[in-house]
C-alpha cells in the first residue's frame, strides 16, 4: 500500500466510521463501509492529488455506500413485512419514559430525522465541517444545508422539551 495513502486514509477513517455508525447504527456495517471507502480511494490513489478536499470526497463515497445499504435493508424489511402480512414498516417510535440513557435518547431522536437532515447535523455538529464543505459532500447548496441543519436541530430541541418538560 502506498505510504502516503495510508497516512491520508488513517486520518479519514475515524470520520467515515463515525458517519457510518450514525447512519447504519452498528459497528460491523460501519467497519464494512470504512473498508469499502478505503478500497475505492486506493483504486484511484494516483488521482487523489487532483481532489481538493479528500475528506469531503471520502464522506461523499461513504454517504453513497450507506444509502445503498439502507435502501437494500428497506427492501428486505418491506419484503419481510409483506411476507408476514404487516402493513407498516419498522416502527421507529421511541419510549423515552423507559429510557434513562439520555445519550441513547438523543441518538434515537437523530435516527428519526430524514437522511439529509441526519447527514447535515452529523457533518456539522460532530465533524465540524463548514457549510460549503457539507454542500459539496451532499451535492447541494449552502442555503439547503442551513435549512436542513436548522430543521434537524429544532426537531430535536422540540422533542427534548416536550418529552422532558424542560423549557428555554
Amino acid at each position: 500500500m502506498d505510504k502516503s495513502f495510508a497516512g491520508i486514509f488513517e486520518d479519514l477513517q475515524d470520520r467515515v466510521f463515525r458517519y457510518a455508525i450514525r447512519m447504519l447504527g452498528n459497528e460491523e456495517d460501519a467497519s464494512d463501509v470504512v473498508q469499502d471507502v478505503g478500497e475505492k480511494l486506493l483504486r484511484m490513489v494516483n488521482d487523489l492529488e487532483k481532489i481538493d478536499n479528500t475528506g469531503a470526497y471520502a464522506l461523499t463515497i461513504a454517504r453513497n455506500l450507506c444509502m445503498d445499504r439502507i435502501r437494500h435493508e428497506q427492501i428486505k424489511t418491506r419484503k419481510l413485512a409483506f411476507l408476514s402480512n404487516e402493513n407498516n414498516t419498522v416502527d421507529k417510535g421511541i419510549n423515552v419514559y423507559e429510557s434513562k440513557d439520555m445519550g441513547g435518547l438523543i441518538r434515537q431522536l437523530i435516527d428519526q430525522l430524514p437522511e439529509k437532515q441526519k447527514t447535515t447535523i452529523h457533518l456539522r455538529d460532530v465533524e465540524g465541517y463548514e457549510f460549503e464543505e457539507i454542500a459539496i459532500i451532499m451535492k447541494t447548496d449552502i442555503k439547503a444545508v442551513r435549512m436542513n441543519l436548522s430543521r434537524a436541530r429544532k426537531f430535536i430541541k422540540e422533542k427534548l422539551i416536550k418529552l422532558n418538560n424542560y423549557g428555554i
Binding site: 439520555m102 445519550g103 438523543i106 430535536i156 427534548l160 423549557g167 428555554i168
Partner: peptide
Amino acid sequence: FAREFFLHW
C-alpha cells in the same frame, strides 16, 4: 435540555 444535546456531540 440542551446539555445532553451538546454532550452527545
